[in-house]
Design a protein around this nucleic acid. Structure first.
Length: 741
DNA sequence: TTTAGAGCATTTTTT
DNA sequence: ATGCTCTAAA
């Protein structure tokens, strides 16, 4: 495509963005103003018109999925060859650079990345050595303090200066110091280290800095409002010489300050760089008028923001709705009703239900299953964080990095006949000999252990030797299959040679879902392999696979072309759009979340509440055609609070943009508790995904012939099935007596 | 010394 | 409802 053609697809503001190729550029792009499009076209323009070489371009996105889509669209629309194109998240891009530059780091290029769970485990382990009480210093909290320090580029050696007065931080300081030393000893980096060390590297090595400066002559950053200090510094260093930095973001959509992101980055961009060009994109192409007007009326109540007003030409068909239901079940029921109504005119996948906390999906699931509405939950638990998956991967991690004590620990604990005492003895001995514990196990002399323990460890070491051998010859998926077989983890879940075993069938839904996850792990590895070969000449190394696995989120792996209603948190909805959006739980304590309310009270600010308001704003602006918001007057909460209060944000709305027929959320009569089931029989709700039998499946019965499952009551093979047979008869049959076909 | 099973606390959002 | 720790049995 030629440059002139390219520009005519864009409005004048977007054209300005594309043409302003040199110097610092701040694009304030409101929701739905075509910001992704801008980035893609700008990249294409740089390449096609300004003849910028692919490898001189750096584009940072917020998720891996966004990066993948950007790549694809560049390839499809502009025929831009994907190889050599640096598009990715901060973490994925910089973990790569750090591997390149590992000679300047305290770790080598095979370092493993510790995820949150690894971090927490490590923190807990240190308490014994440091003699610290884990009740007083909750590992979870300490981990997050450490994380915040790193995101602000405060290394252990500086920590003390900033926190002298506080006695609590004295202990945290001791933990942080040892934690960091231990990570390095294990040749590991945690999530935050990737940013922290990248910044440190660029700060301390002018030669390295200059090298990457020259390499990335043009830089674009998406979702700039959600970057933290470390990210700010990295970008600042990378753009130092050429200043060709384009950041795109919307301060009204900053929803990650709890993760260290600072809204200052976008608010102060004009002061951080000289001769900044600012372009505002305020024309919205996504939402119908009233939805946009409603969102504007809400966000205006925030004080700290760039003033802007979005507008659109899209005429509304329906008024946004806000209504109060009696309880959470009715809330879900109402949503289901509405979904069915919309489904007459649109696909399931055009509808999304958004909520504040993951737990809120439970009630929805129950109703959606009942009503047979297909749905898909995005990002509940990260796939690679599941226990069974981590169990398998720890062997690979160990192969790549012998120093990874966390993985060694995990692998040994999985070994039959090896327990805490043996592991402790091994590590103690290794310390004594000043040797790496893994090497010690893999060597032949284990005479310091009791014969029985030594024998068990021998089994482990010969297995690992075997894996080492296999890893040289086999592809990653094959290696995974081998690990599953040899460790007998596979057998536990009826998996053989990377496939479902024919002989044994699982009945326990818990096991079935784990089996599915493990099979998915192998499929995913295959996909990774293929994807990788598209961009590179050689197959991926184990390190690269593990790297991508740890940095992958559930969102990245999700299939989104399936025709199902989408359920997700508002955080996860960032960057997405849907025809019909439902937002549930507009209640104080939930949205804004009670934690945010408390923190603001403590600090005497509105910062957290404002962030929650932005979160709701993000939710609302996902909607194209219709918006439905609900609250329940009664909700069973974790905190035990039964009766709820409407969200304080409701009064921010300009009522002119809300449906008049709505129930008045403030009209509190007698909220009714959901009716309790009779106490005789405890009815357990089984999620559709856990069931062995699924509604709609075809089955065969020795006496009645073939039929279709109408309903499933209970989990596993013993579930009571309601089956409609071919002769029209409907019978209830226990699962064991039928065969799936 | 290991392991299994019971009892305990615990959930805001996630790269 | 899930994961973790503690206790008792093998």
């Amino acid at each position: 495509m030629v440059a002139d053609d390219l520009l005519k697809d864009l409005n004048s503001g977007q054209q300005d963005v594309v043409r302003a190729t040199d110097g610092p550029l701040l694009v304030l792009a409101g929701a739905g103003t075509g910001k992704t499009r801008c980035i893609i076209y700008r990249a294409a323009y740089l390449i096609a018109t300004r003849k910028v070489r692919l490898e001189n371009l750096l584009i940072v996105t917020f998720t891996n999925k966004a990066a993948r889509e950007l790549r694809q669209r560049l390839a499809e629309t502009f025929g831009i060859f994907q190889k050599n194109l640096w598009v990715g998240t901060f973490h994925s891009l910089f973990s790569k650079i750090l591997r390149f530059e590992s000679e300047f780091l305290p770790v080598n290029s095979n370092y493993v990345i510790y995820d949150e769970k690894d971090q927490k485990n490590l923190v807990s382990q240190l308490y014994k050595t440091l003699n610290i009480d884990s009740k007083q210093y909750v590992p979870r909290v300490v981990r997050s303090i450490i994380s915040n320090q790193k995101n602000s580029l405060i290394f252990p050696e500086h920590f003390w200066e900033f926190n002298k007065e506080n006695p609590y931080t004295h202990e945290v300081y001791r933990i942080y110091k040892l934690y960091q030393a231990e990570l390095i000893k294990r040749n590991a980096m945690d999530f935050d280290d990737i940013l922290a060390y990248m910044a440190k590297l660029l700060d301390e090595n002018p030669a390295v800095r200059s090298k990457w400066n020259k390499r990335f002559r043009y830089i674009m950053i998406d979702e700039y409002q959600d970057t933290n200090y470390a990210q700010f510094k990295i970008i600042n260093y990378l753009a130092q010489e050429h200043q060709n930095l384009c950041v795109v973001g919307d301060d009204d959509q900053a929803i990650y300050t709890w993760r260290g992101a600072t809204i200052k980055n976008i608010l102060n961009f004009e002061y951080d760089y000289k001769n900044v060009k600012v372009i505002r994109l305020e024309r919205n192409y996504r939402s119908h008028k009233n939805i946009l007007a409603l969102s504007n009326s809400l966000i205006q109540h925030n004080a700290a923001r760039h003033e802007k007003e979005l507008y659109t030409d899209l005429v509304s068909e329906e008024m946004p709705r806000l209504l109060a239901l009696d309880n959470e079940n009715e809330e879900a029921g109402y949503i289901a009703e509405k979904l069915n109504e919309y489904h007459k005119k649109c696909l399931w996948q055009d509808c999304a239900i958004l909520y504040r906390t993951n737990a809120q999906s439970r009630v929805l699931e129950k109703i959606l299953v009942q009503q047979k509405i297909p749905y898909q939950i995005y990002g509940e638990v990260n796939f690679f964080q599941r226990k069974e998956v981590k169990d398998v991967l720890c062997y690979l991690r160990l192969l790549v990095n012998h120093l990874d004590l966390e993985s060694l620990n995990r692998a040994l604990s999985l070994q039959k006949g090896v327990g805490k005492t043996t592991i402790a003895a091994l590590i103690a001995e290794a310390e004594l000999r000043k040797e790496n514990p893994y090497k010690l196990v893999m060597g032949s002399e284990l005479e310091f252990l009791k014969p029985r323990a030594a024998k068990m460890l021998k089994v482990f070491s010969s297995m690992m030797h075997n894996f080492t051998e296999l890893s040289r010859q086999e592809s990653i998926p094959d290696l995974l299959a081998a690990v599953l077989d040899e460790t007998e983890i596979g057998a536990q879940f009826a998996i053989k040679n990377g496939r479902k075993s024919r002989k044994t069938k699982l009945t326990d839904p818990e096991l079935i879902s784990r089996q599915e996850n493990l099979l998915e792990l192998i499929t995913g590895a295959n996909e990774f392999n293929d994807e990788y070969l598209k961009l590179n000449d050689d197959p991926p190394s184990l390190t690269e696979y593990l790297n991508s696995a740890t940095l992958q989120t559930d969102l990245d792996t999700a299939e989104d072309d399936a025709d199902m209603v989408k359920l997700m948190t508002m955080h996860n909805a960032k960057g997405l759009e849907f025809e019909h959006v439902f937002i549930i739980g507009l209640e104080d304590g939930l949205l804004p979340h009670s934690r945010s309310i408390e923190e603001d009270l403590k600090d005497g600010t509105d910062a957290k509440i404002e962030e929650e308001r932005r979160l709701l704003y993000v939710g609302i602006t996902r909607a194209k055609k219709t918006l439905t918001m609900t609250l329940a007057r009664w909700r069973r909460g974790i905190m035990g609070n039964d009766v709820t209060l409407p969200s304080r944000f409701i009064k921010d709305f300009d009522e002119r943009f809300l449906n008049e027929e709505r129930y008045d959320p403030y009209a509190y009569f007698t909220p009714s508790r959901p009716k309790r089931k009779p106490a005789v029989k405890i009815v357990k709700v089984v999620l559709e995904s856990e069931k062995h039998y699924k509604i709609g499946q075809k089955i065969k019965h020795s006496e009645h012939g073939t039929g279709e499952i109408l309903n499933v009551d209970g989990k596993g093979k013993n579930a009571l099935l309601t089956v409609k047979f071919e002769d029209g008869k409907v019978k209830k049959i226990v699962g064991n007596y039928v065969e799936l076909i």
